[in-house]
Simulated scan of single mutants.
Amino acid sequence: MPEWILWSLLAAAFAALTAIFAKIGIAGVNSDFATLLRTVVILAVLAAMVPLMGKWQPLSSVPARSWLFIVLSGLATGASWLFYFRALKVGEASKVAPLDKLSVVLVAIFAAVFLGERLATVNWLGVALIAAGTVLVAWRP
Rank of each mutant, 00 (worst) to 15 (best):
A13L: 12
A13H: 01
A13W: 01
F14I: 03
A15I: 04
A15G: 06
A15L: 10
A16S: 10
A16M: 08
L17C: 11
L17D: 02
L17T: 05
L17S: 06
T18E: 14
T18Q: 11
T18C: 05
A19G: 09
A19V: 07
A19S: 09
A19N: 05
I20T: 11
I20N: 05
I20P: 01
I20H: 06
I20A: 11
I20R: 08
F21Q: 09
A22N: 02
A22K: 03
K23G: 03
K23V: 03
K23A: 06
K23D: 04
I24D: 11
I24L: 09
I24A: 13
I24W: 11
G25D: 00
G25W: 02
G25F: 03
G25M: 01
G25L: 00
I26Q: 00
A27V: 06
A27K: 14
A27Q: 12
G28E: 11
G28Q: 06
V29D: 07
V29R: 12
S31P: 15
S31D: 09
S31Q: 06
S31E: 15
S31N: 03
D32Q: 10
D32R: 08
D32T: 14
F33T: 13
F33L: 12
F33D: 01
F33I: 11
A34C: 00
A34Q: 09
A34Y: 10
T35N: 15
L36P: 02
L36F: 12
L36E: 00
L36W: 13
L37H: 06
L37Y: 07
L37T: 08
L37M: 14
L37F: 10
R38L: 11
R38I: 06
T39M: 10
T39N: 15
V40T: 04
V40I: 14
V41G: 07
V41F: 11
V41E: 02
I42H: 07
I42Y: 07
I42Q: 10
L43G: 05
L43A: 15
L43Q: 04
A44E: 05
A44T: 09
A44G: 05
A44C: 10
V45T: 04
L46W: 07
L46D: 05
L46H: 02
A47N: 10
A47V: 06
A47C: 08
A48Y: 08
A48F: 12
A48E: 02
A48R: 05
A48T: 08
A48L: 14
M49E: 06
M49Q: 09
V50W: 09
V50A: 02
V50P: 09
V50Q: 09
V50S: 10
P51S: 03
P51E: 07
L52C: 15
L52Q: 13
L52D: 10
M53F: 13
G54Y: 04
K55C: 03
K55M: 13
K55E: 15
K55R: 15
W56H: 12
W56D: 03
Q57W: 02
Q57R: 11
Q57F: 06
Q57S: 12
Q57Y: 07
P58I: 00
P58W: 00
P58K: 06
L59E: 04
S60E: 12
S60Q: 09
S61V: 07
